[in-house]
Design a protein around this nucleic acid. Sequence first.
DNA 1: GCCGACAGAATTGTTGACAATATTGTCCGA
DNA 2: TCGGACAATATTGTCAACAATTCTGTCGGC
Lengths: 216, 216
Amino acid sequence: MPTEARPGTGEQAKQHALAQLRQAILHGEMAPAQRLVENELAEQFGVTRASIRAALIDLEAQGLVERIRNRGSRVRVVTVEEAVAITECRMVLEGLCAAKAAVAASDEQLAELTELGTAMTKAVADGEPVTYSELNQELHAKVREFSGQRTAVDLLERLNAQLVRHRFQLALRPGRPQQSLSEHLVMIEAIRARDPQAAETAVRAHLTSVIEALRD
Amino acid sequence: MPTEARPGTGEQAKQHALAQLRQAILHGEMAPAQRLVENELAEQFGVTRASIRAALIDLEAQGLVERIRNRGSRVRVVTVEEAVAITECRMVLEGLCAAKAAVAASDEQLAELTELGTAMTKAVADGEPVTYSELNQELHAKVREFSGQRTAVDLLERLNAQLVRHRFQLALRPGRPQQSLSEHLVMIEAIRARDPQAAETAVRAHLTSVIEALRD
DNA sequence: GCCGACAGAATTGTTGACAATATTGTCCGA
DNA sequence: TCGGACAATATTGTCAACAATTCTGTCGGC
């Protein structure tokens, strides 16, 4: 998945440079259900309509945009129920990754997790929810990476991309970081102990809590 | 995901008619690593290259074909390790579905599962591995359907599509249907008992056994 | 005043041709 | 005979124009 939007020198594949459209959506620069007109996008990004078209097909497959026959494309809106369903899938898949990571991670990687844990603790103590949210994502990403389960990682990245909008809301909720933090620390500890069963349980407990929070 | 290939009357969207390419791959009509030249496919299916192109992008997102810059497309070959990784993901996701189905299924739906169980028992007794394999898939599909978890179902269908080639090999292995059958019956019983925990455990036990079988 | 039909505008779907790139085969020299 | 450079070929990537479809606004009839 070439999400690297680095059109700097070669500018060889403009269609890949259009993965910046993906970034635009992920960064919330496109309104929730904004219409995506191919011509406008083509002009905006300085490429041809065919490239935009290919990019939109890609994004549709990733569940980020919706395309209706002869009617155009919109950025897909994820309802709360969908967000819950997605998070349920995340729950079991990340549980799998955590269990694998507990077995497969190197000692250096374990140290990285520990480091992240202290950083997150500090972020919560300092009352910086944004920093915490970023560290949060980094932690989950590292666990996925250390699992070596490429299939699960692919699926999870696809799922996570659909949740950007809901994630922000969650991080800013008062009291939420505190609960989240303790759950994460349990998770890290389980992986450090190289106990796959405990790691999976911890991850599922955490995401169960996220689901409850999502339901408001 | 409009995989409905029904070009019968309108023949309106040729690009959708090209989802028959998907069928061709799934039915094994394309060699394992066969080259897929856009021009050839365009002529073969009687559509333009642009449509084929869009279809290939779709199939790439589904993990069925591989596309390399300026080099073309091939049908993706799934190694044994990948098949194991995919099945691990299936394991946790189907576990989720089974747990949900145990709670959400109607009594009629439970009856359907029971019926399938007896049919599978008969197929094994009669020594018909092909019939058994079909019933097997039907059972898994029904469990997914009854769960009402659309996200998980989408992911699972994507994953299953990548396993077609390996599935056949497995079903024809001597002794395999017998073991598989008993695992399936446990699974059905757990769902009928409306015990989500037991259902998830049963599914995971079954797919763990499949993974071991995959490893030869 | 309301409803259906019709024309106009906007947008996507499709087509064919052209440019960029990688592979393959060939030729020359050592 | 072997190795490297170079041309020929095949294939994908990109582009602009055309056709088909859908939506919008207006008009005429009831």
